[in-house]
Nucleic acid binder design. Structure first.
Length: 407
RNA sequence: GCAGGAGUGCCCGAGUUGGUCAAUGGGAGCAGACUGUAAAUCUGCCGGCGUAAGCCUUCAGAGGUUCAAAUCCUCUCUCCUGCACCA
């Protein structure tokens, strides 16, 4: 077994802060002395079950705790989620129903266990204790915090300075989140650096409740594939943990070169890319891409993805595209086909793509938006370099179009 | 509550002496050239329907004036700023 110091050092590696410094070591020692693992809390928003590599940075850290025998509490903030959104960024979200929360929780489990160890993870919901709270309890919670301190939070400070509104209920969020730590008696809480304040509130509340205060460990926020903004599904610069190996590989290949080292470091693949200069930038990136695909989808799938990528995009070899079947009752124009395949979001866009020479049928550039295809035909259709399919038109007896039904 | 200001396309943001506005510009995005599905650069596109001509729907919402409105009038909603409230 490694020493306590060694374990604490490994667990804090890559973190932006470990607060308070040095306490993690004590907690590890304590845990060993008592023969029980540390309880490591991670809070998740119940409304966004699409986990991406940004979340993976934190999840990987949690997995490391598990590798050292500790227990992760995956807390789904269903209660907070039912009230609305605290960031002020988006409008108040519609309250989630119990069914939606359950559905999201299932989806979370599915995604999270690609990274976390099922055996060492407990999933909890904060409605378990928050629903039982009465107004007096909530006010009591509020009494643990001052406005001055609350306003220190970057987000609030900024909005205050800019004269943008802050809802009172937003002050409650960090408190509720912090109280979760009390309810769970968390030893450690891990989150992104954007959560630093909230995680620290957990410490304050635990102190107020006479509990040992959790160690707060924050991880850096990962930039998205654009290399500029933090990874986020809504910005379209994310790679999801459940994405296909080809997608993971391809999207990783599309990140800016300078980002490779950072991704590798945050996601724990420094070894694959080696030292700067060991491999060319492209080789290093391929190594990272394969490592990520392998991590999330398995080694075999990853190496296949790499081979396909190299053939398809680097050697420009012909490859077998996905077969897409479209049921038709009458001839289908090229424009309609592009829309049906999802290669264009509207007919107008399809026309633009055609006009710009992006659409190919076989090897030929398509020029006629109105070109029609009939049932039984099979063509190789591509748009740009990324969208390609073998399309087969199947004769359908029943009209599938609702607008044509029952008139 | 009172007074003042503002609400434009994915985002930011021009435009308000009414027409030439589907609406300047930037960002994002998409496509073409180049390339390593990188970066940088150049070019084009970037509301919808349509082979096309053309048509339709947009400038917070609802009405109105007008041959014609993002631009004028009325009402409503939302946000911001100040005052007041907090005795």
């Amino acid at each position: 077994m490694i020493s306590v110091e060694e374990e604490a050092e490994r667990l804090s590696r890559g973190a932006v802060d470990v607060l308070p410094v040095g306490e993690l070591c004590q907690r590890v020692a304590q845990a060993r002395a008592r023969g029980r693992p540390l309880r490591v809390k991670f809070g998740a928003d119940p409304s966004a079950p699409d986990l991406h590599l940004g979340h993976a940075v934190v999840l990987r850290k949690l997995a490391e705790f598990q590798e050292h025998g500790h227990e992760v509490v995956f807390l789904i903030g269903d209660f907070t989620g039912m009230i609305g959104d605290p960031t002020g960024k988006s409008e108040t979200r519609p309250a989630l129903t119990r069914e939606q929360v359950g559905e999201n929780a299932r989806s979370y489990r599915e995604q999270v266990f690609r990274i976390l160890d099922r055996e060492r993870t407990v999933v909890r919901f904060n409605s378990e204790w928050m629903e039982a709270m009465r107004a007096a309890d909530v006010i009591g919670l509020g009494a643990q915090m001052t406005v001055a301190r609350m306003v220190e939070r970057d987000d609030f400070a900024r909005r205050l300075a800019e004269g943008r509104p802050i809802g009172i209920h937003e002050f409650l969020y960090p408190l509720v989140q912090g109280y979760d730590s009390v309810a769970l008696e968390a030893d450690v809480e891990v989150g992104g650096t954007d959560q630093r304040f909230n995680l620290l509130v957990g410490r304050d509340l635990q102190k107020a409740w006479g509990q040992p205060q959790q160690v707060v460990l924050t991880m850096p926020l990962l930039e998205g594939t654009d290399g500029k903004q933090k990874m986020s599904k809504s910005l379209g610069n994310a790679i999801g943990v459940t994405d296909e190996p080809d997608t993971i590989f391809g999207r990783t290949m599309s990140i800016p070169d300078p980002l490779v080292a950072r991704w590798a470091a945050l996601l724990g693949f420094e070894a694959v890319i080696g030292k700067p200069g060991d491999l060319g930038p492209m080789e290093a990136k391929k190594g990272l891409a394969e490592a990520l695909a392998s991590w999330l989808c398995g080694a075999e799938a990853a190496s296949q993805a790499r081979i396909r990528f190299e053939r398809r995009f680097q050697n420009r070899e012909a490859f077998e595209p996905e077969l897409r079947e479209i049921p038709v009752t009458e001839d289908l124009t090229l424009v309609r086909m592009l829309v049906q395949l999802g290669f264009a979001t509207s007919g107008a866009e399809a026309r633009r793509l055609i006009a710009q020479g992006a659409v190919r049928i076989g090897e030929e550039r398509a020029a006629e938006p109105g070109q029609a295809f009939r049932a039984g035909e099979e063509i190789l259709l591509s748009v740009g370099r990324r969208r390609l399919a073998r399309v087969r038109l199947i004769l359908s007896i029943q009209p599938l179009d609702d607008s044509k039904r029952g008139r």
